[in-house]
Design a binder for these strands. Sequence first.
DNA 1: TTTTGATTTAACCAACTGGTCAAAAATAAA
DNA 2: TTTATTTTTGACCAGTTGGTTAAATCAAAA
Lengths: 204, 204
Amino acid sequence: MNDLKKDNTEEKILNAAQNVFIEKGMDGARMQAIADEAGINKALLHYYFRTKEKLFNAIFTKVFSQIFPNLMTMVRSERPLEEKLGMFVETYIDLLQKNPFLPTFILKEMNRNPDFLAKIIKGSGVNPTEVIAMFEKEMDAGKIRRMDPRDILVNILGLSIFPIAAGPLITIMFFENDKAAYKAFIERRKKTVTEFVLNSILIK
Amino acid sequence: MNDLKKDNTEEKILNAAQNVFIEKGMDGARMQAIADEAGINKALLHYYFRTKEKLFNAIFTKVFSQIFPNLMTMVRSERPLEEKLGMFVETYIDLLQKNPFLPTFILKEMNRNPDFLAKIIKGSGVNPTEVIAMFEKEMDAGKIRRMDPRDILVNILGLSIFPIAAGPLITIMFFENDKAAYKAFIERRKKTVTEFVLNSILIK
DNA sequence: TTTTGATTTAACCAACTGGTCAAAAATAAA
DNA sequence: TTTATTTTTGACCAGTTGGTTAAATCAAAA
């Protein structure tokens, strides 16, 4: 068995599947479309990943675990809160801007199959304790006002994710379908979201 | 033609279709499932709405135009900003809590077919000018800090919608899959989201 | 009662979809 | 080279899906 060729085909499949699944979702994706995008035969697709479900699970797990841990490392840094938040928001919005279908994909599929989501989360060892502890430390230090740290995290995520997920709506309602204007709007939010959050939680 | 019977069947279909489409989305929904839920024959379903697409468009239009205008009336009231915002957030989160699949449904489908979304928005005459004008008036009056009013609106929507759309994730990560705890969390947010926003935009 | 038109149904169909299989091609081992 | 193993392919299949049709049922008008 040629490892190089095998790895190559498998990688081509994973890339193709990721593209198709993220855009169309589990129900909308077609095995034939994935095979086409990978430039291979449909039978070969089934040779590598026996079923659509197995392939989908592989992709969902991959995508999901690519996003969260990377951002955790940022939280762990020793920078002041303002900087950490700024970096997080900027990196995150940037990532989503480059993958505009990612938010709806994850949101839709986590609602379609919450059990599988639970399995992944438990398996990946990702838990938000660290982030929560960080916010609590800042509260103890009197730097930010007292509130449920979970609200802070959810708020940051909502402020970053929603504007991308609702991109088409915003583009039409606010910018008369001018995509460049929408893009600039999102670009600005890399700064304004941080300001908005800090303005709300910081004690002056 | 018996109007009563016709209306009744059509209404049964619309209700059933709304349930199925909102939960499964366009791709995941099955005409047979809709017929079953409506308690009728599949042929009858096609008799009332010739194609799946026509039925879906009817539902999407209906759902979409049910949500936005209702909330506009709230904005038009002469109450102070704090009250208006409080009412809006509370009503909106409450609506979403009762229809947890609504956010992902609309987000997913608006991304699947942005052209149709544009058509609906143009048709419904809904535009956010009024809300933007309202925020600008408050800025002129020195009540809230100067910023892009579109950001304020998007932020409020994101803070309200995202926690419902990401319900499964939050339930697992923050509440060890305890649905009641998640529900209480969302309940609390009816107040805390308003506080969070006011804290950020109000000039003290 | 008969007739007319709308409503409802069971049976059916063609296209699509995920998945299989046996054989061919390519690669590695002997 | 020959043999064994893995990778790739084209043809195929069974189940599903959206949609059709002709006939049956029903309600109201004549």
